[in-house]
Design a protein around this nucleic acid. Sequence first.
DNA 1: TATACTATTGATAATGAATATCAATACCAA
DNA 2: TTGGTATTGATATTCATTATCAATAGTATA
Lengths: 146, 146
Amino acid sequence: MDAKGKFGQYVAGKGLRHTVQREQIVDIFLATEKHLTIQELYDLVRKKYKSIGYATVSRAVKLMTESGICRRVDFGDGSQRFEHKFGHEHHDHLICVRCGKFVEIYSKRLEKLQEQLVTKHGYVQLYHKMDIFGLCPKCSKKVRGR
Amino acid sequence: MDAKGKFGQYVAGKGLRHTVQREQIVDIFLATEKHLTIQELYDLVRKKYKSIGYATVSRAVKLMTESGICRRVDFGDGSQRFEHKFGHEHHDHLICVRCGKFVEIYSKRLEKLQEQLVTKHGYVQLYHKMDIFGLCPKCSKKVRGR
DNA sequence: TATACTATTGATAATGAATATCAATACCAA
DNA sequence: TTGGTATTGATATTCATTATCAATAGTATA
């Protein structure tokens, strides 16, 4: 099932309605390969559909997050950002604190270790977030070169 | 060096002044083994020292975070919380999404794997955050029992 | 197809947390 | 001491998110 289908199913399953605005917002969100704030998504949506309101975008993001096609990421800059899960496997982030550049990282061994840790404490894992902050190659060179 | 000393050193090193308010706030923060919001810390401080303002608490938390004796934790409930690092080794969190109960987790193997991942991408690690969300033993039993 | 019910929308107000402002005060080096 | 200035506490401001509400638009049913 693709992301859009998953969203539609979630919305229908909750007895909510299908609306053109939601469809437009979801389309634009899924077509953007960035970590967006609500404001940024609102601006993008506005470029194409002039009449959509901020509140509607905000509500749509909330729904998308609940439906599981979107997740909140926190890069520590104080703003809430969201990324979609369309065409992306689960991944974590490695973020440069100097320039903000990031890469998506994934390790099967790490995932397995996490699962073991969870089980050891008797918990059932639902999801996790791991963000590593550091210096990218370029920035670490600059810092050393000072 | 204990946390308070580290804070004092950081403050002095930046050419900032030592004040009784900061000392009182730091003391209360370090004495509390919880993940506090600024508002909660403000309330705690107020119980003992009636005249301290919210802004001062907020500024002190910022300083403590910069000095490295405090770090921000995000349990996904939308509020920013802070924990101190006094008498705590580095750890990550395992949080129950149902009841909010959490445990601090640590694994040397996991830390090593993270470091390897970072190095592989040419980054230099400064710090990381890992939060695993799931169901605690009690809550997972309840859900299954439905 | 028409109708009734109600979720949704967009504009705006309200909320809440963090930050900025500023005059009075307190710290601290000299 | 004293002068320079960082700090404080009260308050205002900012900014993002959420709540409100009348008008609108999905959708099930007749």
